Simulated assay, not measured.
Amino acid sequence: MIPGPYLAATFETRVTSVRHLHGGDLSEVARVDLADGRRMAVKVGANVAVEARMLQAMDRTGAPVPRVLFQGRDILCLEWLEESPATEAGWHALGRGLRRLHATAGRSTGWPEGYAFGALRLDMTPRPDWPSFWCEARLLPFLPHLPAALARRVETLAGALPDRLEDVTPMLLHGDLWSGNALFSGDRAWLIDPACYFGDPEVDIAMLHLFGKPGPSFHDGYGELRRGHEARRPIYQLFPALVHLHLFGGSYFGLVERLLTLARV
Rank of each mutant, 00 (worst) to 15 (best):
D176V: 04
D74S: 11
E230F: 08
S251V: 09
L21P: 02
A160L: 11
A182T: 11
P66E: 10
D36M: 13
Y197F: 15
S132G: 14
D200F: 11
L245D: 01
L7H: 06
T109P: 05
G106F: 05
V68Q: 14
L255M: 15
S84Y: 04
L139D: 07
L122P: 07
L210V: 07
G221R: 00
N181Q: 10
L150F: 06
L157V: 02
R19G: 05
M40L: 14
R258G: 00
L150Q: 14
R73T: 03
P216I: 04
P66I: 07
L225A: 07
R153E: 12
L161V: 05
R121M: 14
C77Q: 03
N181T: 01
V243F: 09
H246Y: 15
A263G: 11
H92K: 11
I75M: 12
T125R: 15
P147G: 12
P141T: 09
A52C: 06
I192W: 10
D59V: 01
L210R: 06
P234A: 09
A137V: 05
L247D: 12
Y222P: 04
A241P: 00
S84P: 00
G4P: 10
R153H: 08
G159L: 09
F117V: 15
L76E: 03
L146E: 07
F133N: 01
P216N: 02
L183Q: 02
L150H: 02
Y236R: 05
Y6C: 04
G228F: 03
G95I: 01
L245Y: 08
L140K: 05
H102I: 09
L150W: 05
T109V: 03
P126Q: 02
R138Q: 10
T156M: 14
P85S: 13
A148R: 12
M1K: 12
G199L: 01
M40W: 12
A41M: 12
W178P: 02
R258V: 03
A8W: 12
W134D: 06
R152V: 02
F211M: 07
L7K: 04
P214R: 00
A93R: 09
E113I: 01
Y197L: 14
L55Y: 09
A93M: 10
A119K: 14
G254Q: 03
D33S: 15
K213G: 09
L146H: 11
G249S: 08
G62S: 08
A8F: 13
H209R: 15
I2M: 06
T125L: 15
G118S: 14
A103E: 04
F248P: 04
M207G: 03
V48T: 08
E166F: 11
E51P: 08
A158L: 08
E230W: 07
M124F: 11
L122V: 15
A119G: 12
D193W: 02
G180I: 05
S84D: 05
G114V: 08
